[in-house]
């Protein structure tokens, strides 16, 4: 059987809110390592990879590896029924076609359980090799979300350029153009407000803003976002999930033909 218990149930709620609009169905893999998921969006432009390590849970039991096919919109509906302070338990018995979500209020005076039917999902798993990136930008996640939102009111694509000057986000549309430059800034009181730019090579890539705005739905999970760029690779937008793992979004660039 498989069982996990997470006292900070709101974290699972936030994970679902971050991915449910990008991916329709996905296989969630449960192993001794943890609870993980990899899925592409329906147009195969973006990929999301989630890892919640077993050590991060208050209780984690996985007798044998299982893969649970889940419709994310339905899982999000169920997790919306959990209170923000609720303790969440997820449980699946071997050989059954459903998974149970149990929510306990912190004072134990309300206990709910929801059973979600599992699905057979024929999903393709992609191997993502470790890569050296030309530039890695760490910045406040809220700032990144704000930039993507602001630029999408002007254009559909964003050019992300990293130079010695900093990281520049540019767009153009029918009404005009926009450029936002963020410089490295480590002289802040709180580390979560820092912007750190590690550049090996200058890099400039173009991406669809629609996807960036979708990734930014993970903002409540982490105060910082890491954007890894290489001229011949998809961008990786990573939100670390405190003490537990990460949610990584991979997005293929747009190129001029």
């Amino acid at each position: 059987m498989f069982e996990l218990r997470l006292e900070q149930g709101s974290l699972l709620k936030k994970v679902m809110e971050a991915i449910k609009d990008l991916v329709n169905d996905a296989n969630f893999d449960c192993s001794a390592t943890g609870f993980s998921m990899q899925a592409m969006d329906s147009s195969h432009v973006a990929l999301v990879a989630l890892l919640l390590r077993s050590e991060g849970f208050e209780h984690y039991r996985c007798d044998r590896n299982i893969s649970m096919g889940i419709n994310l919109a339905n899982m999000a509906k169920i997790l919306k029924c959990a209170g923000n302070d609720d303790i969440v338990t997820v449980k699946a018995d071997d050989g059954t076609d459903s998974v149970t979500f149990m929510f306990e209020s912190p004072t134990q005076d309300k206990i709910s359980d929801f059973e979600l039917k599992l699905m057979d999902i024929d999903s393709e798993h992609l191997g993502i090799p470790e890569a050296e990136y030309d530039a890695i930008v760490r910045m406040p996640s809220a700032e990144f979300a704000r930039i993507c939102k602001d630029l999408s009111s002007i254009g559909d694509t964003v050019v992300i350029s990293v130079t010695k000057e900093g990281v520049k986000f540019s767009t153009r549309g029918d009404i005009g153009t926009a450029n936002i430059v963020c410089r490295q800034n480590t002289s802040v009181d709180k580390p979560e407000e820092a912007t750190i730019i590690e550049m090996k090579e200058m890099v400039s890539l173009t991406f669809a803003l629609r996807y960036m705005n979708s990734f930014a739905k993970a903002t409540p999970l982490a105060s910082q976002v890491t954007i890894s760029l290489s001229s011949d690779l998809p961008v990786v937008v990573e939100y670390k999930i405190a003490e537990m793992g990460y949610i990584r979004f991979y997005l293929a660039p747009k190129i001029e033909e």
């Binding site: 195969h44 432009v45 992609l126 191997g127 998809p234 991979y250 997005l251 293929a252 747009k254 001029e256």
Partner: peptide, 14 residues
């Protein structure tokens, strides 16, 4: 004209 690449052009099935 800009063309959207697919993620599958970069990563292989495992």
């Amino acid at each position: 004209r800009s063309v959207q690449l697919s993620i599958k052009e970069f990563y292989r099935s495992s």
